[in-house]
């Protein structure tokens, strides 16, 4: 009984906020603003709770209590860096947070470089080196080379080089067209999702 009531209240609240957000299509209004602020506030609150209970508590507090010896005390280091990050909120010592930011940047850059080379550039280059015995392989090779030529700006796009660049822009445009078509489908999917919610969960007519 209580679960049903909670579900009904939840559905009606979701309906209110759905219609409030959709009302922006007519024009900006206080209902839209309310829904927007509630969404932002709820998301921030949710993130905070989740990070506290699924990151800070198990990865720092619980681990510190459970581990022994070196494993235990090394946890203090990331916790200390995390605390430094919070110094940004105190203008007088805000510069201290740069140490933690530098550490994060260093890790991200290191992982990013190795990841990009090992996981993207090399496999993608390898996958382009195909025998030209298939029309798809030929199209792919022409597309890759001409697109790279288009983005090569150290030489003027004239003559054969210019023709290759023009072919390249055709491939780029086709790719934009495909991306735009997919984007239309994605946006309509979101509308369908909301329409389904209104017709199914709220009105119960489908």
């Amino acid at each position: 009984m209580a679960a049903n009531l909670a579900n009904t209240i939840g559905v009606w609240m979701a309906v209110f906020f759905t219609l409030a957000i959709l009302s922006f299509l007519y024009k900006d209004n206080p209902f839209y603003k309310l829904a927007e602020y509630v969404y932002v506030g709820l998301s921030a609150g949710y993130w905070l709770i989740y990070v506290m209970f699924f990151d800070v508590k198990p990865m720092i507090v619980d681990k510190f209590l459970q581990e022994q010896g070196f494993e235990r005390y090394i946890i203090i280091f990331p916790a200390f860096l995390g605390a430094l990050m919070l110094c940004r909120m105190i203008p007088r010592i805000a510069y201290v947070s740069r140490v933690a930011i530098a550490f994060t940047m260093g890790i991200s850059a290191g992982l990013g470089v190795t990841g990009a080379i090992h996981g993207m550039i090399l496999p993608q280059v390898k996958a382009t080196m195909l025998p030209l015995n298939d029309i798809n392989n030929v199209i792919m090779l022409v597309g890759v080379i001409s697109t790279v030529v288009y983005f090569y700006f150290s030489r003027e796009h004239k003559g054969a080089f210019g023709v290759a660049a023009k072919v390249g822009i055709i491939f780029v445009m086709i790719s934009f067209g495909a991306a735009f078509g997919y984007t239309v489908m994605a946006r309509i999917s979101l509308l369908i999702g909301r329409a389904y919610f209104l017709f199914h969960d709220w009105l119960g007519i489908i």
Binding site: G119, P123, Q124, K126, A127, M140, S175, A178, A179, Y182, T183, M185, A186, S189
Partner: peptide, 16 residues
Amino acid sequence: TAVGAPDYYNYLQAKQ
């Protein structure tokens, strides 16, 4: 999502 899908066809083609 449909918006992101075109970005992954190259990985599919490369059998990644």
